[in-house]
Nucleic acid binder design. Structure first.
Length: 471
RNA sequence: GUCCCCAUCGUCUAGUCUGGCCUAGGACACCGCUCUUUCAAGGCGGCAACAUGGGUUCAAAUCCCAUUGGGGACGCCA
């Protein structure tokens, strides 16, 4: 392998959905790799047997694919590599760099809580370190001997030089009693064997880094470069969690967000390129650099995501947007196989500038397609009035006579009516809008009528007239 | 409790490394005005920030120290 080649990885644990924070980490790794023409590896850290699930692995892969964060090579799974960790742990044991620990998790937990409660440092007391002979038949974990002297320096690419006193670190467990490695150990072994050059991960791992550096040295490895990303916080400035609303990327997909918008938004959370706000994926790759990453945590702002989403909805190729909105139409109960794409495309173009998500768009499209529409109560009260009745009747009469049901002709009908009756355009346009869409908001009324077609237009105005008469 | 990180408009941020061009720029949101058949979008304008206190310097958002505030870590989780 080329010595200068960049290799980075995204290493999620499959214990739930793929969340926003994870995606941002994945994105930055991806951008870094692509910018440098290097490789981006996906590694599933599934060494926690009780929490890892197959569904979560699928969810991660699905999310990554949706966002177009293509990884190189086959995804790695730590549970496929258990032998490697065991061998490495045994080697440390043989070299006197590690020892067996017979303390049970329950005991350790109790001691930790006691220490914390009495204001002491919850640090392992090394009681198993000098055991003369193995305790037969008792489950045992393997601990790595941490140095008490000196300091460990992390030269972080984002934070700069961070110094830890080794006395703060304790002998961490590297292999559990069930033979599975723990995070700090497997990550070091894997990052080395996968030849990872840069570890780009969340800030919450900064405290683990000195431990990992000691492990690198213990194993005789050269540590990679580290870059710790600032965290994403919720609106109350605590770590982003379910309490703050949707945190799963797939939830955003389901709400009608475009992956481009999500990527763009997440990229700008902690990273900036001057005043630029809108970036295509290619541009992100071209312009990304670790130097432009900030140090302070960022609050997730759904409003801005929404704004970006509406931008992308309006920039998207109509033919792509048609395909993207179809699943949302299906949710509205509309089967698209009978719908003409060319017609649907025209509808989308006229509607999209007032829609911020695909679901909103699908909701608006539905009134062009459904046979029966629901008329908003307030809109009905305000515009489907006795006063509007004669105008609607006259308009209907004229519309029936139109042989060419196109915007320009429809407009003439409206304009003539307005002139003849001495009313304002709004006096007739609004009632018609309510009659045909059920709402007070829509694209230009001539446009709506043309797209809706003569037959539906007439039916809906007739219905509105009868609604007024009955009231 | 101990350790680590961070600190510019409500939010995301530019500017900080390499002090002067900063009367601190952009974006989201908000508020006006405009366009207009409605609502958006668009256009124009407005509101709004260098956490505090000490230094260093001719000069500090920018460098140093302290304080305060916020976040994170301290697992046989990752």
């Amino acid at each position: 392998m080329n010595k200068n080649e960049v290799r980075v990885r995204f290493a999620p644990s499959p214990t739930g959905h793929l969340h926003i924070g994870g995606v941002r980490t994945a994105l930055f790794n991806f951008l870094f790799a692509r910018h440098h023409g290097g490789n981006f590896i996906l590694r599933i850290e599934d060494t926690d047997r009780s929490r890892s699930t197959e569904e979560s692995i699928e969810a991660i892969i699905e999310g990554m694919k949706w966002l177009g964060l293509e990884w190189d090579e086959e995804p790695y799974r730590q549970t496929d590599r258990l032998d490697i960790y065991r061998k490495k742990a045994e080697a440390l044991l043989r070299e006197g760099k590690a020892y067996y620990c017979y303390c049970t998790p329950e005991e350790l937990d109790t001691r930790r809580k006691e220490a914390l409660a009495s204001g002491k440092i919850p640090k392992y007391d090394r009681r198993c370190k000098n055991l003369k002979s193995p305790l037969e038949g008792k489950p045992r974990a393997i601990r790595f001997i941490s140095s008490d002297e000196g300091q460990t320096v992390v030269d972080d690419l984002i934070r700069g030089r961070v110094i830890f006193d080794n006395i703060q670190l304790d002998d961490l467990i590297i292999l559990r009693s069930d033979g599975f490695p723990t995070y700090n150990f497997s990550v070091v072994v894997d990052d080395t064997s996968m030849e990872i050059t840069h570890v780009i991960r969340g800030d919450d791992h900064l405290n683990n880094t000195p431990r990992q550096i000691q492990l690198y040295h213990g194993l005789g490895y050269e540590p990679p470069r580290f870059a710790h990303l600032p965290m994403i916080l919720g609106s109350d400035r605590t770590r982003l969690s379910k309490r703050h609303g949707a945190t799963s990327v797939m939830a955003y997909k389901e709400m009608g967000y475009l992956p481009e918008a999500m990527l763009n938004y997440l990229a700008r959370l902690g990273w900036a390129y001057g005043d630029q706000e809108i970036f295509s994926k290619e541009e992100l790759i071209e312009k990304f650099s670790l130097e432009n990453i900030g140090k302070s945590p960022a609050v997730f702002n759904p409003e801005k995501l929404l704004w970006l989403n509406s931008n992308y909805i309006n920039q998207d190729e109509p033919k792509d947007l048609i395909e993207r909105v179809k699943p949302f139409l299906k949710i509205e109960g509309i089967d698209c196989i009978y719908i003409d794409n060319e017609w649907l495309g025209r509808i989308i173009i006229s509607l999209r500038e007032r829609c911020r998500t695909l679901s909103e768009l699908a909701g608006s499209i539905s009134y062009y397609i459904r046979d029966e529409i629901q008329i908003d109560e307030k809109a009905k009260e305000k515009f489907l009035t006795k006063k509007a009745l004669p105008y609607l009747e006259k308009l209907l009469e004229q519309l029936r006579l139109l042989s060419s049901f196109v915007q320009s002709e429809i407009e003439k009908v409206f304009v003539h009516l307005v002139e003849r009756e001495g009313i304002k355009l709004g006096d007739i346009a609004q009632p018609v809008r309510v009659a045909v869409t059920g709402k007070t908001v829509s694209p230009g009324i001539y446009e709506v009528l043309e797209l809706l077609g003569k037959e539906k237009t007439i039916k809906r105005i007739e219905r509105a007239i009868s609604v007024i008469r009955k009231s």
